[in-house]
Nucleic acid binder design. Structure first.
Lengths: 212, 212, 212, 212
DNA sequence: GATGAATGAGGGTTCATTCAT
DNA sequence: GATGAATGAACCCTCATTCAT
């Protein structure tokens, strides 16, 4: 967010606003986010938000699209096709956990969007298009595992992806309530490392082919 | 919500407000909820919310506590201690999925509370106390399974609970974005039934003891 | 506008707001009117405008309806049915002129509403209903005059009313531009008296039956 | 408004802006007009409005002056001096009606200017100068009619002009409210034709010399 | 002569909350 | 225990105008 103010650099201005908006929406949700705070954080005039994005909702959608684009591009960089299937699976699980951990804003943004019943995402073609590759990668991964007799048959890549994400999502998204409820600090380093191992074990074991 | 207005029945008035508040908070989140709408839905005067609960935040906490109490009491009614361990596990998984499906407000309330960093729950002794029994039940269940050679060793009941919940939570909480992203209606009956089976399979298989 | 603030007198509060709004809308038009100024003039909290009227447009409509109601009730008080037709006509012309002169806000409100293409009035049943009596009174007046051989036949009461109003309206509504253009102060007392005579003469002469 | 954009033709640019501004001011009034919309309509950069006209008020004055110039030049073209007095009068009435009907923007501009208490026009020498000829023409017309025993004596040309204009102005300027109030579409072709006849009759009859 | 980017004041409206009865 | 009236802070957004190029 260095040097975001004034100097007539549209690209930078836009980017600064987007970054500031991401932080604000992540922290307070769509409803709780304040346009004034976004502008201040971005070092921009409030009017500029409207100049570049139109209104608060459109800005939120832009934030959402950028967030999706980011995780998708990180996923693609994993290059799962050239790893042994079980290793690839572990890698995806570890990555997903790590990504959620490093990008808590992503979880909050998803929550906000779903609270609003997917209002913004349903109008976005871009978000829809970003996902096809991931599912296909998972499908190939599952097929390779099946052929090698490592994974059980009939696993739906979409269901699997949701399970992988779900393992980390519930833990991290509800970190505050769960820590309170279970009387443990789930965000302590030891706890995080433990959960990472647990996640990997759960997914890999669940896919493993049954011996007869 | 039948007959919630007027006739000077304190208990009923309080209950009506609580029910209305639950619906409102679930639908719009803490920030998006409107005190006016809650009063209207409850058929009560706005001033009564303050009379009975103090303020919006306290009302939210009351709603949260009631929601936790409800799911916990339903869990206790499962009577897992008298079932065969694998059956008990399947029952818990099925119950959790079903509960989340039937009580979408519970998911939204959790999201809201975590967006606010557990601000309310951290002040509530009651919420903390509600959970010890659940963990102990799970611990007994796991131990029984281990002894019978059905489950692998070393599974933490808290981690397991989070996994069970996570399988359903991510799917249901993000129903709108996921449906959009994957181009499927995840809430169609067929899709829901499929997911229920998937969940059970994942958890049970993941706990199963490895053959050597 | 005496004692308009605070003392929990809903009727008075509402009335105060309406009076203040009338002045503000008359002075600045719908678009130029400021909600803040109305509240200040009314000695009320800005929030109250919304409490009583909903929003700016609804408030404008309320002002408009009240204005129409006022002039119509004044017209009815003229009791034209019991006067000699020509006297009745002169009385109506004089009244209309006087009313426009004493209630310049009425002209401005009409202008505003028509600038907005009758958006508000078109949703008001009340405004429509207020006018049938006026037309009927005029119709009776014309018929009486015809029968007595004083007025020419075939005059439409609506057209006549528009002519009567038009005589004063153009002069008064455009007082500033016309004064400038013709280099006369049209609002000087002499000028006003002269116009009043002119109006009466024009209308009465125009209706008078042609000798053959 | 054909080809108003870009190609560095100062005269055309200025004209385009003026045309666009006329439409905008006519439609929304001075206060409701938007500088952005004017620029867009004119196919010009917003900065150009300020380059050519200074500011919004100055632009409004320019529009007003142009509008006055136009109607005045059209009036002069009527050549009333060579017609029989009653025919000349009918011609002026018909022309005025027709002009108001064909140039509704003129009415709205006048309303706006008067709402603002003639603020712009009072600073314009040009507007003042444009009118003398018309009054003189009317004066000659009246005198000719008097001499021929057709018109009554003592009619002030300014008052007459205002009456002629008023007949059409009130009807057309308040077209929306009147149509609503009287439950008739005053802008239907039949209604317009009827009003044209009514206007002529009213004015001509009112001027006609009384038989003794 | 022409442009896109930037500004700050203020627009209507909504909010949780409290007062007086 | 219950009510309608009142409050003031703040929210999202828009405006005419100007700056830098």
């Amino acid at each position: 967010m260095n040097r975001c103010n004034g100097q007539r650099d549209p690209k930078r201005s836009r980017e600064c606003i987007l970054v500031a908006a991401t932080a604000e929406f992540a922290r307070y949700g769509l409803g709780g986010a304040r346009v004034d705070r976004i502008a201040t954080r971005a070092g921009a005039n409030k009017r500029m938000l409207y100049y570049y994005f139109g209104n608060k909702d459109a800005l939120f959608l832009a934030v959402l699209e950028a967030s999706y684009a980011q995780i998708r591009s990180a996923e693609l960089a994993l290059d799962l096709d050239h790893l042994e299937p079980r290793a690839a699976l572990r890698r995806l699980v570890a990555f997903t956990w790590r990504y959620f951990l490093d990008h808590p804003e992503f979880l909050t943004l998803l929550n906000s969007e779903n609270l609003h019943r997917g209002r913004h995402v349903s109008q976005s073609r871009r978000v829809r298009e970003l996902h096809s590759p991931l599912v296909e990668t998972l499908r190939r991964l599952l097929r390779r595992g099946e052929r090698l007799g490592l994974f059980r048959r009939g696993v739906d890549p979409v269901q699997l992806y949701i399970s992988i994400a779900g393992e980390g999502y519930f833990y991290l998204s509800n970190r505050y309530t769960l820590s309170r409820i279970f009387g443990r600090d789930l965000m302590a380093n030891v706890a995080l490392a433990r959960r990472a191992r647990h996640n990997a074990r759960m997914i890999v074991d669940a896919l493993r082919k049954q011996p007869r």
